[in-house]
């Protein structure tokens, strides 16, 4: 068996608005349009990822919150309806997906060996979180690749950003080791926004783009600073600045998703391919790909 590899990492934010605006057959609500900058960015990233011929998507989701350890989906197949508890008017999605359980178990085991608290989720009635579903749909709407879904153990809330970073880095390194041993070609998805302050009201027509903008300029400045680091490949600085970024821009990177993904890639001094930046109900979202062997031609 050849050595497995991470062929790409991606920042793949999960606002359900993006699926809503695409009008896939799985989603019940119907939109006229909306958030095109982000959706078209996802389309370009999809094309680049498809050129890599990968075997599995490994996604870290802030919306599977497990305060005791990091959990992994451990059931081979799920079929259910996902209704977003925050935006149920936009996202009521019938999903059918396969899980790469052997890889999930391998990452779980590697992470446990690294000292992290871990658990496999074996309940077949479990409803997969909408962060996992949205990010995977936007990257691979055909759902013809198995996934590994990893929870967020919220150590930022329980301890500090620094503890979260340490744990996310250990988890990322464990993920890389398990993928290497698996012989598979994996794409990693960090399912999170950048700045994450929402509006607390919604326009009558959610896809009315005349109402969409960043919640405040402070968050925009922070998002631009982070994206500049991404474009210049300043990965270590990007991680080092997270405590300030999380505190000042109320970011969703507090979940550990971005740190995990970059740690799995080995914190490369590698420029990310920024496909899009846009806001969704006031939050800042970037679609970015990191390609260790270069952006596919």
């Amino acid at each position: 068996m050849s050595e497995g590899t991470i062929v790409a990492g991606a920042l793949a934010p999960h606002p359900p608005h993006l699926v809503y605006a695409e009008n896939p057959p799985q989603n019940e609500p119907v939109a006229e349009c909306g958030w095109e900058t982000l959706r078209w960015g996802y389309e370009r990233m999809r094309r680049d990822l498809d050129a890599l011929a990968y075997d599995v998507l490994v996604v870290f989701s802030p919306h599977w919150q497990t305060y005791i350890g990091t959990h992994f989906l451990g059931v081979p197949h799920f079929q259910n309806k996902s209704v977003d508890p925050i935006f149920p008017n936009l996202f009521r999605y019938d999903y059918t997906l396969d899980v790469d359980v052997p890889l999930a178990e391998a990452i779980c085991e590697e992470a446990r060996d690294a000292g992290l608290v871990t658990k496999m989720m074996r309940n077949p009635d479990f409803r997969v979180d909408y962060g996992t579903i949205v990010s995977c749909h936007m990257v691979r709407p055909r759902w013809d690749k198995p996934i590994v879904s990893i929870s967020s153990c919220r150590s930022h809330a329980y301890y500090s950003t620094e503890v979260m970073q340490e744990q996310a880095i250990a988890l990322g390194q464990a993920t890389a080791r398990a993928i290497e041993r698996s012989g598979k070609r994996a794409v990693l998805l960090a399912s999170c926004s950048l700045s994450h302050r929402h509006f607390v009201t919604e326009s009558e027509l959610p896809e009315d783009m005349s109402k969409e903008h960043i919640t405040n300029h402070n968050q925009y400045l922070w998002d631009m600073r982070i994206i500049q680091m991404i474009k210049e490949g300043r990965t270590k600085e990007l991680i080092d600045v997270q405590p300030e970024f999380i505190s000042q821009a109320i970011t969703e990177t507090d979940s550990g998703a971005l740190t995990w993904m970059l740690a799995a890639l080995g914190m490369p001094q590698l420029a990310g391919e920024v496909y899009a930046y846009g806001t969704v109900i006031g939050t800042g979202n970037a679609v970015v790909g990191w390609y260790p062997k270069g952006v596919p031609a």
Binding site: Q65, T66, Y67, I68, P85, N123, F126, R127, H198
Partner: peptide, 26 residues
């Protein structure tokens, strides 16, 4: 039950499902 868009109030007359806790699923 966290919400972002104001407060939400359940109004389905007869909600029916099989619930599994995201943390204590076992």
């Amino acid at each position: 039950w966290p919400s972002v868009i104001g407060h939400q109030i359940q109004a389905d007359p007869e909600p029916e499902w099989v619930h599994v806790d995201e943390l204590f699923h076992d």
